[in-house]
Design a protein around this nucleic acid. Structure first.
Lengths: 238, 238
DNA sequence: ATTGTTTTTTAAGCATACTTAAATTTTATT
DNA sequence: AATAAAATTTAAGTATGCTTAAAAAACAAT
């Protein structure tokens, strides 16, 4: 009856979900194609097929949107991805730049049953090593409220780093060398328009980050108590 | 240059290897097809394709044989399979009947890098929870010398159980209920021809096992010290 | 040795997941 | 508003991995 879901389908749906979430990204076939390393034609074709399967809403020349079933599939895959990342980092000690690559594969051949076992073994974490929230088995997504890209954080305020979303070794080496980690407190001094740069200050040091980097770091206003992923309780989203 | 290996290819090559090892099994396309749940035509087709890729030696109407490259691929997959089984059992506590199913999937999307990490985490085990040997990264296969199917063990002698090769829950429930586990000592009283049955004696109890079961248990003569997989050192095979 | 059965192979066809190239639509610009 | 640029869609074609049905070869048995 219900035929198996291919890796290509899971990756496509996942990418549409992620691009739909990030503001500034569009979900037209071309964007998805670029991300997945396939041709525009292939992406359009896939969109039509997945529309037939009621995973995607597709209208010619319009952005792609997920149906509830599609969203649910995307969140299940993302859950597995982030559980594996957490596991590989905490248990096997893989580096931050290695976990994404491996999780990208494992996520597709992991049963819901096994995902729950990983989650249980880890004590049901709510965020992965990047600070990204891990969807629960029902697809609810705990999210740190008020998080924003560092590149879009209003200047003058104090923030705490809440996500490191990169996957390159160089990125994590850079962050480590500069003391940028989950929870690091910093102040945004300036947001420059051209060239796009973010100037931040941390413990006396001043850093100038180009847009590519500042879009990989998420921060939350540093007022109130520190955000603790481990004890954060999910609230329904508006 | 070197395009990625599909799951279908890995499973095909793995099955050919395993059927080639087990005596009494043949490696003609039909057998492989039956095992993989595909048609004879598909198996023949696959054999021709893999011959082109120099993974298999194929001559019409003859049994399939692996090339060195094919054998190497098979052992790499089997290594990942058994490492995952060991891991899932020891670390996540999955039941004996659950580990095969999950490992069957994970084995295909596990990098060599990750396999080595799993092996390292587990202390480089040489056998999986079934007692099956785990190939090392170079493809050397440590094997307990002198192991034989319980169904083929000469009667009258004492043996120690060295493998439980099943994957069904019922099989492991049966073994547990009867006290059959790795290392269990038993004596083969009789090997009946028709119907094919094996009569064994263990701690006073007498068991009559039908062929299907007796072919899933491997035993080794119980003379000398117990076989300890953890300390067994691989020897080159003849 | 011929017949009948089993197995393998060939042939034709289908779904998935891509490709490139051409046609169409949208978007941006002047 | 017309036109140029960019993106999307359609069309045609390919490789993989299967299917069923028919043809050919191998095997078994009298």
């Amino acid at each position: 009856m219900k035929n198996p879901v291919s890796i290509a389908t899971e990756n496509f749906v996942k990418t549409v979900y992620q691009f739909d979430q990030k503001k500034g990204y569009d979900t037209r076939p071309g964007s998805i194609a670029r991300e997945l390393g396939i041709s525009n034609a292939a992406a359009t074709d896939m969109a039509r097929k997945l529309a037939r399967k009621e995973l995607i809403e597709y209208k010619k020349y319009k952005e792609l949107r997920l149906t509830p079933a599609g969203r649910s599939m995307a969140l299940a895959v993302i859950r597995k991805h982030r559980l594996w990342e957490t596991f590989l980092h905490q248990v096997f000690g893989l580096g931050m730049h290695e976990i994404h690559r491996e999780a990208e594969l494992l996520e597709h051949l992991t049963s819901d049953f096994l995902a729950d076992r990983i989650s249980h073994f880890l004590g049901h974490p709510t965020t992965d090593p990047h600070g990204d929230p891990i969807p629960d088995p029902t697809g609810e997504l705990p999210d740190a409220p008020g998080a924003v890209l560092l590149s879009q954080a209003p200047a003058g305020l104090k923030y705490r780093v809440s996500r490191l979303s990169g996957s390159e070794k160089e990125f994590f080496d850079f962050c480590q060398a500069r003391g940028l980690a989950l929870g690091t407190v910093l102040r945004v001094k300036n947001q420059f328009r051209n060239p796009r740069m973010t100037e931040v200050e941390m413990e006396g040091t001043v850093l100038l980050l180009h847009a590519g980097l500042a879009q990989t770091l998420h921060v939350r206003p540093a007022t109130g108590p520190a955000y603790d992923p481990a004890t954060y309780v999910n609230e329904p989203q508006p």
